[in-house]
Design a protein around this nucleic acid. Structure first.
Length: 271
DNA sequence: CCCAAGACCTGGCGGC
DNA sequence: TGCCGCCAGGTCTTGG
């Protein structure tokens, strides 16, 4: 899915295209995604003006004059802006139609996404309140990871994928950050030193920052607000590259599984 | 609380 | 060509 860089790329792309527009109506074409799509409830936004779009973790928070729309792109979701009517294709599940005839459309083949209308500030919503710190916040530090990991026996790969620990990472960027910091994804989180967690935090920020600069990573589905793919795929060092030479030492990159997720790593560079 | 496994859903790909 | 099993960027729930 869309991990933090893809969600943020989407936010930046669509905000200037739709800020200030008024909702004409919201159209849903399936009964539910990850949660039921409540058409009548969503249409309480009729006539409301879009004030701003924020992001928290992998969620987009659309702030309207009459409430909020909370959107998650799941595994395969993307949002695309159309300046005038465009016939919906398969998997185009939700349209936010604006009074000037333009439309923001959610396409999500696997339907793991989510669209909710909220009357109150979504920051207090159960889905967001349990998310850990943003990777670029001060709170997210080597000391923070070190403290939270003491006594924990799960692999560091799973630890970093847990949104309660840090928000916004997914399988691609976890694999990349562990490679950049030289940490074996199978290591027990509780066995990693404070110093190595400092390195890991830098690696997470470095990888996410570079992915943002490239407009995110497109493996198959992801597109930004105007349909453009993300180019960080070309810069991935280990994700999806099992069997290829390590970009640092040329040993063959390994592929494995941790908790039903694929991991990619170099046995020589990552300990 | 901690951890592992499976559930949700559709499409694409490799293998036979 | 056609079918089958497996895999996929996420997250929630269940059960030990």
């Amino acid at each position: 899915m869309p991990e933090l860089p893809e969600v943020e790329t989407t936010r930046r792309g669509i905000l200037p295209l739709i800020q200030g527009k008024r909702v004409e109506r919201i159209i849903t074409r399936v009964a539910s995604l990850r949660l039921p799509l409540d058409g009548p409830r969503l249409n309480r936004l009729r006539g409301a003006k879009l004030v701003d779009i924020d992001r928290r973790a992998k969620y987009l928070l659309f702030r309207f004059s009459a409430g909020w729309l909370l959107v998650h792109l799941g595994m395969s979701g993307s949002l695309r802006f159309y300046s005038r009517y465009h016939p919906p294709a398969a998997h185009d599940h939700v349209d936010i139609r604006f009074s000037d005839g333009s439309c923001l459309r959610l396409r999500d083949p696997r339907r793991f996404g989510l669209v909710l209308f909220l009357e109150d500030d979504p920051m207090g919503h159960a889905l967001l309140i349990r998310c850990g710190p943003e990777p670029f916040s001060e709170e997210f530090s080597g000391l923070y990871l070190y403290r939270l990991s003491r006594g924990r026996r799960l692999q560091v790969h799973s630890f970093l994928l847990d949104q309660r620990i840090v928000a916004g990472l997914g399988n691609i960027y976890v694999n990349e950050a562990l490679f950049v910091s030289g940490i074996d994804p199978q290591r027990r989180a509780g066995s990693i030193s404070r110093k190595r967690y400092d390195t890991l935090v830098q690696a997470v920020r470095d990888v996410l920052g570079r992915a943002l600069d490239a407009g995110g990573t497109t493996l198959r589905d992801f597109r930004d607000g105007v349909g453009k793919p993300g180019y960080f795929s070309l810069r991935l060092q280990v994700y999806g590259r099992g069997g290829e030479p390590c970009p640092r030492c040329l040993a063959i990159l390994r592929e494995g599984r941790v908790h039903m997720r694929s991991i990619f790593y170099c046995r020589r560079c990552q300990k």
